[in-house]
Design a protein around this nucleic acid. Structure first.
Length: 564
RNA sequence: UGGGGAGUCGUUCAGCGGCAGGACAGCAGACUCUGGAUCUGCUUACAGGGGUUCGAAUCCUCUCUCCCCAGCCA
């Protein structure tokens, strides 16, 4: 991983690890893990965790495991396992041979449960879910002991074994830790550690009908794998005493849990439940819809792993709740693509331009620079001819103040080509719409430089009508119109803040011929417009591009101010 | 109202007893064959009150505000 350009800023987890190494804790070892539940696709919030865990391990010469927290067969699927592996790899991280599943430890977990029973620290409880809720008490009222709390070790052992054997109905019994029903921390009020679930597990099939709960499985999995720093999000803070309790009672190797705040990004949602809702409800086309904050969505949109890694480093790691500005993510993408993306010319909303004094059958091949930020990326030829397309936005019949582009009688430069001057405007008789421009060109400005050193105030992109390729371009905007869609007014669901204009499709764009055969996933800068990525829907007959992010647009800003 | 956390520029992250700093955003300017990029400059913050100290964002104390927890989810 070489995000070498970005200086690492200090954060509290980095500091803890550095101190632990100083103090020779864990023998100077650093071993982290990324523990997703395979019940959905990964999103940018997970990327933060991935970068943290894999990044910290790499930084301190340690290791990071990929471990699936697959203890709930009713929600988990192989499809998710596969997508998660793909996404982590795509982000640029490698778990080598350390791919684990909590389900790998089911037998061992079961034996640890028996150990807890034997030491009097766990019991089989016959309370129904409703009853258990009653006994649990409330936030301010202590709970009451379950009537089954004092069963003998022998009875517990027998019952637990029969739970495993499938003798009891789903939901009829649980194995519970015997801790403290009066604890102020609800997680310590005799939490369930095993429940009966007669469901087929995506890896263990029907071998089990009892499954361990997160709190029990997670700390032990960490322990088994020799994890040193078990990094998770803030909502698990209340679970830490339980994490510690299990490992202490079991008297096994004990990693430390460290919590940090989850990522919130403006104008989107980052909760699996809500993302599933968007997919299932058809509000987006799928998990990889380019508007989704999922890794697969961002990838399809045109984000690069490098830009996401940089973003994750820049947002830092802290314990306070925050909402990161989407503009920062976009900035990180622009920063990366500015250095690496090939420049091409593409006209999104074509306006025909006829160069009246240009020879009818002539075609010239003009030289264009592939990336002014990196001359080693070379040059290419772009065909120029008498009939061209320019952007509709680049012409105004009645130009407002500070509008530098083409207007009647005005001269501008066509990028890498010639200076042209607009001499006539052709309009649709009925609608008054400008449908065609007639211009003259100055042959002496070939390549874009005027020998007499005269200046023009604008340089426009263009394509040759006869040579251009047709393309579809999909323009994206924020998925939500509200910075924090979760923070709804009275009874408003987050979906009521969906942006109706989050997708705009342009079907008759014209792009320069060098784009023929462009491969899905490749990024380009359409000069003066933004960064675009070839969509998987693209075919050799019809190119399809997604706009990942626009270029900063100073004119748009000026114009907006003028309107106000 | 039980338990656990958190409050530093508009946003975000640093600073851990000695001049409050970076990034993003914003504003202004320079430069430019992308109104891009780049460069320069500017504006703006320690939740509040007491205390300790030569000196407090930092230590103590009280208050206020916000977040999480009552799944046989993770």
């Amino acid at each position: 991983m070489s995000d070498s350009t970005l200086p690492l800023s200090s954060n509290f987890i980095r500091n803890i690890i550095a101190e632990d190494i100083q103090a020779n804790k864990y023998n100077k070892r650093v071993h982290t893990r990324f523990p997703p539940e395979p019940n959905g696709y990964l999103h940018i919030g997970h990327a933060k965790s991935i970068c943290l865990n894999f990044g910290l391990a790499a930084e301190f010469g340690g290791l990071c495991n990929l471990r699936f927290d697959d203890t709930n067969p009713t929600k988990e699927e192989v499809e998710y396992v596969e997508s998660i592996k793909e996404d982590v790899r795509w982000l640029g991280f490698d778990w080598d041979d350390r791919l684990y599943y909590a389900s790998d430890y089911f037998e061992q977990l079961y034996r640890y449960a028996i150990q807890l029973i034997k030491t009097g620290n766990a019991y089989v409880c016959d309370l129904s879910p409703d009853e258990m809720r009653g006994y649990r008490g409330t936030l301010t009222k202590p709970g009451e002991n379950s009537p089954y709390r004092n069963r003998s070790v022998e009875e517990n052992l027998d019952l637990f074994e029969r739970m495993r054997a499938g003798e009891f109905e789903e939901g009829s019994r649980t194995l519970r830790a015997k801790i403290d029903m009066a604890s102020g921390n609800l997680n310590m009020r005799d939490p369930v550690i095993y429940r009966i679930l007669k469901a087929t597990h995506h890896r263990t099939g029907d071998k089990w009908c009892i499954y361990p709960m997160y709190d029990f499985a997670h700390c032990i999995s960490d322990s088994i794998e020799g994890i040193t720093h078990s990094i998770c999000t803030l909502e698990f803070e209340d679970h830490r005493p339980l994490y510690d309790w299990f490992l202490d009672e079991l008297n096994v190797y004990h990693p430390q849990q460290i919590e940090f705040t989850r990522l919130n990004l403006s104008y989107t949602v980052l909760s699996k439940r809500k993302l599933i809702e968007l997919v299932a409800g058809g509000y987006v086309t799928g998990w990889d819809d380019p508007r989704m904050p999922t890794i697969s969505g961002l990838r399809r949109r045109g984000f690069t792993p490098e830009s996401i890694r940089n973003f994750c480093e820049r947002i830092g790691v802290a314990r306070r709740e925050s909402m990161v500005d989407m503009a920062l993510l976009e900035h990180c993408l622009r920063e990366d693509l500015n250095k690496h993306a090939l420049r091409v010319m593409a006209v999104l909303r074509p306006l025909m331009v006829v160069i009246d004094n240009y020879p009818e059958d002539q075609v010239e091949e003009l030289c264009a620079i592939n990336n002014p930020e990196d001359l080693e990326m070379g040059t290419r030829k772009v065909p120029f001819s008498r009939i061209l397309y320019i952007e509709q936005d680049d012409f105004r019949e009645d130009p407002p103040k500070q509008f530098f582009r083409l207007a009647p009688g005005r001269e501008v430069r066509l990028r890498y080509a010639y200076f042209i001057k607009c001499i006539r405007v052709v309009k649709d008789d009925r609608t008054g719409e400008v449908i065609e421009l007639h211009c003259t060109y100055d042959p002496k400005t070939r390549g874009g430089d005027a020998p007499d050193r005269r200046k023009v105030k604008a340089t426009l992109h263009w394509v040759s009508a006869a040579h251009a390729l047709e393309a579809e371009v999909r323009l994206y905007d924020n998925l939500f119109i509200k910075a924090d869609p979760n923070e709804g007014e009275e009874g408003q669901d987050f979906k009521s803040y969906l942006n109706p204009n989050s997708l705009g499709i342009l079907k008759s764009c014209r792009v320069e011929p060098s784009l023929a055969g462009a491969l899905p996933g490749s990024n380009y800068q359409f000069e003066r417009q933004g960064y675009f990525c070839v969509d998987p829907d693209s075919t050799s007959h019809k190119l399809v591009f997604n706009r990942a992010v626009s270029l900063r647009d100073t004119w748009a800003k000026i114009e907006k101010k003028q309107i106000q």
